[in-house]
Simulated scan of single mutants.
Amino acid sequence: MAVVAFAGGAQQGFAQSSESSEAPKLRIICFGAHPDDAEYKSGGTAAMWAQQGHHVKLVSVTNGDIGHWSQAGGPLARRRTAESAEVARRLGVTSEVLDIHDGELIPTLENRRKITRLIRQWDADIVIAHRPWDYHPDHRYTGVLVQDAAYMVTVPYFCPNTPPLKKNPVFLYSSDRFQKPYPFEADIAVGIDDVFEKKVNALTALVSQTFEGGALGSADEMAEAPPESKPQLRYEWLRQRWDRRQSGEAKNYRAALIRWYGEDRADDIKYAEAFEICEYGRQPSDEEIRQLFPFFPKE
């Protein structure tokens, strides 16, 4: 399966950038189950990291090969890989799509090793994934696999051919609306107003999902979207949908925005993405969170 490669060597901890000896450059890896999930959940924050020169990788754990109502198999997997790569290019990040069939992800030992190696190879400071409670089995098992890696990434003789991390990353869950066994709790909320337009523009590249309806779409639903010949109408159409989604995130997690931005600045934030700290990885202090999210205002 096609991979967009990122040029850059692994370094430990908050690695010093080869371009600059002044500021550490973070390494963030975001896992989604399909070639759209990480983009949807973390695309705005990814763009903000990238704008500051930090290194972000979006990984789809399956190839999305049944994620369309009228297409499937290898041609769809290749199409969605290309869409994901274009989103990453527009956001200023990199992407990879694993060659695992959509709808068939299982938390096997082989897949645990695969996820562990990816985190080690990226030398991640931050790892983001679904929570392991979700309507879609691929989402759930992506969460399980990343959770399972939260300890194993530092164990020397697990996947011994890939050097273990010397420092456990901070593992984060992306937001969702599921209530059982417990609801998502926003430990961190990021105002993405400055990159909202960039995120929407990037997501227009996910044509199979955004304008054609994905797995549960139809010819009638596809006809409701503006045609490909009118890209500005397409952008505005999609922007309306993401305006509701990201403004809802800012409203629902206002308390977390206030915590990190202060009440006055939080009141001015219209769009947000939110994250919950997984208790299995490193537990960061408030000071460290501000280092990991360097676009937060200084106290």
Rank of each mutant, 00 (worst) to 15 (best):
E104D: 14
W133G: 02
A215S: 13
K166S: 08
K198Q: 15
D99M: 09
A150G: 10
P226E: 13
A225P: 05
T210K: 11
V200M: 09
F158G: 04
H130F: 02
R117V: 14
I188P: 04
P181N: 07
A225D: 08
L105H: 10
V97C: 11
E96Q: 14
P132V: 07
A149L: 04
G213R: 09
W133I: 00
V155C: 09
I128Q: 01
A189L: 06
T116W: 08
F211G: 05
D125Y: 06
S174W: 06
Q147G: 02
Y157S: 14
P183N: 06
T210L: 11
D123P: 00
L98C: 11
P164W: 06
A129E: 00
P169L: 03
P107H: 14
Q179S: 03
F196K: 07
L165V: 03
V155N: 08
V170N: 05
Q179K: 05
D99P: 09
D138H: 08
W122D: 06
R140W: 03
R140T: 13
T116K: 11
K114V: 11
S218F: 13
F171S: 00
Y135E: 08
M152P: 01
E110Y: 15
F178L: 06
E110I: 13
E224G: 04
A186P: 01
Q147N: 11
D99N: 11
D176N: 13
N111K: 13
A150Q: 07
A129Y: 01
D193A: 09
L145M: 08
A129P: 03
A205Y: 08
V153F: 06
D125L: 03
L165D: 00
I192G: 04
W133A: 11
I119E: 05
T108W: 14
T142W: 01
L203A: 04
P163S: 08
I119W: 04
G214P: 10
P181G: 05
V200G: 04
D187F: 07
V195H: 01
T108Q: 12
P226R: 12
E185Y: 03
R131W: 05
L165A: 04
R113N: 10
G103A: 11
P183F: 03
I128H: 00
Y173A: 00
I128Y: 00
L109T: 13
H139S: 07
Y141W: 12
E104A: 15
Q147W: 00
V195N: 01
E224V: 11
K167M: 07
P169A: 09
T204R: 09
E96H: 12
R177K: 10
L216S: 15
K180L: 09
E212I: 02
D99S: 13
T94A: 15
A219L: 13
A186H: 02
W122K: 05
D134A: 10
A150C: 08
T94P: 03
S95V: 02
P227A: 10
N168Y: 07
S174F: 14
Y173W: 12
N168D: 10
S174A: 15
C159P: 05
A129H: 07
F171E: 03
M222A: 15
